[in-house]
């Protein structure tokens, strides 16, 4: 038994051939403030021989806002993107933004479980003149799932040759990637699957590139992103807590996988410094920027100049140009 398990472990580095070419749903943030995430995700995909085909005529998933006007409209908006994915002949769509990923997953769940959502989706789809999305047709995955399943740690370790060696990283996943658990049926499924209470996919990927992940208790804490503007003082307080905790854990970098979290951390890091005089030095980088540089891409190629807490000097010192 023990022997079998070892053998399985050695060969279980997952490489999902179906993911070599997937539909890509960037979402609004990646065309705006999250531009560096868009750029670095595409660059990493290219470097690893993975093809991303942008969903044709995609629309906003509803983000954190539309559900507060009407939750079923948000379900419809997300489902429309799944219809568009299906129309292109794809059965997997990759969304790097936590908000998009969460909403597409939630639409999938609601359309399979909530009659009111089904009714609204059918009604609005009919009026808009396209077929209503039927659950089960398209699988939504996150950029973390994508790299983990299509490439895997072994291949990444080989390709990166430990370029992030010695870099102390706090991996920050935020809220939307793991909560609430019922919309993520693929998580918490034992060995190899992602955990909703202690997510580790980003840790795994960065560790395979040589990074030293610090023990960070606020992986899934909230940055207040939903109210980054409407309740800025609360957001600053929440973000400051995350930044100071990361520093206390010995992190030099906070790795992010969501444009809302990333921007919220950046904005409120500066706001805390300007308004509260609380300066923190931890750098905030998308995990795709870190992986891209580990794969030998330049700072420019992964859009580091767009990061607010300028990490260029720090990265140079680490040998990442």
């Amino acid at each position: 038994m023990a022997k079998d398990m070892t053998e399985q472990d050695l060969t279980s580095d997952p490489k999902d051939k179906n993911l070599k070419q997937v539909a890509y749903y960037p979402g609004c943030a990646l065309e705006g403030t999250g531009h560096a995430y868009n750029r670095s995700t595409k660059a990493v995909g290219k470097a690893l021989g993975l093809e991303l085909v942008e969903v044709k005529d995609w629309n906003c998933c509803g983000a954190m806002e539309v559900k507060n006007i009407d939750p079923q409209v948000q379900t419809y908006l997300s489902a429309r993107n799944l219809t568009k994915t299906e129309e292109m002949g794809f059965d997997v769509v990759m969304a790097p933004c936590n908000g998009c990923y969460h909403n597409l997953k939630k639409a999938e769940y609601d359309l399979a479980h909530n009659p009111q959502a089904v009714e609204a989706n059918e009604r609005i789809s009919a009026k808009a003149g396209h077929p209503a999305y039927q659950p089960g047709r398209v699988e939504t995955i996150h950029a973390l799932d994508w790299l983990k399943r299509a490439v895997g740690e072994k291949e990444l370790a080989r390709r990166t040759a430990g370029k992030l060696k010695g870099m102390k990283i706090a991996n920050y996943y935020g809220c939307m990637y793991t909560r609430p658990r019922h919309i993520f049926p693929d998580k918490d499924q034992g060995a190899g699957s992602e955990s909703t209470h202690a997510p580790h996919f980003m840790d795994d990927l960065l560790a395979s590139a040589g990074a030293e992940n610090v023990d960070f208790p606020l992986k899934t804490a909230c940055c207040g992103g939903a109210h980054a503007m409407s309740d800025a003082d609360t957001s600053t307080q929440l973000v400051l807590n995350i930044l100071t905790t990361a520093e206390a854990c010995g992190a030099e970098v906070i790795a992010t996988e969501c444009p809302t979290c990333h921007t919220s951390l950046e904005i409120h890091q500066l706001r805390a410094e300007k308004l509260l005089g609380r300066k923190t030095n931890v750098k905030i980088l998308y995990f795709t920027q870190l992986l891209g540089m580990a794969l030998g891409l330049s700072q420019r190629k992964v859009g580091v100049a767009e990061n607010m807490a300028d990490p260029r000097v720090y990265l140079k010192e680490r040998g990442l140009r």
Partner: peptide
């Protein structure tokens, strides 16, 4: 109307109108 609701409304108006949002526009409206 709370600040959050004002933001949600401006955001949703933008989505309903264009299908996508432009962050700068949402902020200016807010």
């Amino acid at each position: 109307e709370s600040l959050s609701s004002v933001f949600d409304r401006g955001f949703t108006d933008n989505v309903v109108h264009s299908g996508k949002i432009e962050e700068g526009h949402v902020l200016r409206i807010f």
